[in-house]
Design a protein around this nucleic acid. Sequence first.
DNA 1: CATATAAATGAAAGTTATTTTTATTTATAG
DNA 2: CTATAAATAAAAATAACTTTCATTTATATG
Lengths: 148, 148
Amino acid sequence: MEPEQSAAILKQLKLKVTPRRQEIMNCLGREQSYLSADEVWERIKPRLGSIGLPTVYRILDELAEAGVITRIFLSDRKQNYFLCANQEGHHHHFVCESCRRVEDVEQCGLEGVSRDIARRSGGRVTSHILQINGICGSCCQGHAGAAP
Amino acid sequence: MEPEQSAAILKQLKLKVTPRRQEIMNCLGREQSYLSADEVWERIKPRLGSIGLPTVYRILDELAEAGVITRIFLSDRKQNYFLCANQEGHHHHFVCESCRRVEDVEQCGLEGVSRDIARRSGGRVTSHILQINGICGSCCQGHAGAAP
DNA sequence: CATATAAATGAAAGTTATTTTTATTTATAG
DNA sequence: CTATAAATAAAAATAACTTTCATTTATATG
């Protein structure tokens, strides 16, 4: 992720463009997989001299609330975050349980569900969580049958 | 949930049929909304005389892993659990952000996604998380516009 | 450019959900 | 009934995450 892009995203969110925020976005943007708050911290510390862990938590939470980064749900309770190169258009993610790589899943098909809920019960849909888990192509080939 | 049903479910999972496990399933089965481990603990303590909190955590985790109960994802990091009366057929849940009630969502439409991933990248889908959040019908009517 | 101000961050301490460990108890197969 | 493997209690530990408040910094405005 280019510095200009992260700056633009932050400005759009009415957040100040600070080195910490940009560095966190750059760090996640370099990865094709998700990272925990702790992992982000370890990676950006040398680049910034120093940064407090609460700052990392705060920024990750802000960006996730704003929808810039995606929370990845795993069986351990830790929160993990992924910054998708594709910042446009509603889509979801396929998460490889073996190598942690995240791929886009274009198909969503939840517009129909929202309509159904509204029609059936008079309710209103505000958000949804969709995450596909599995073994990615290269992991399937690399060690066929090694899936958990 | 009837005692016979919980016993049958536990036997099918090769888990011992213990009073603690049954009481936890009964407790969740009585609710139309999700509960945290702590809430389950408070509710079953008087019925069992005493039970340790780690036991509650262990049993909830077992049942969730087995797919008998569903983890509900909220913005606070706490784990919450829901036991669906409908134990047959693949489906998902609509969670009311206002009253915590959980309703079934029959439509899923993820079979196509699995096929797509397999075709496009050679990957394999093992599971998926889908949760619809919103305001349920009665909350919408009860206090129209009171949604967060 | 200078500066006022609201937002952002650091540092340290605190909170709490969740887990681990080990000894004891209990469900169940035979 | 009895053996045994699984389940539970109790207490302590862990670690993810938050809070607080003093200090610093980005940025709007003159």
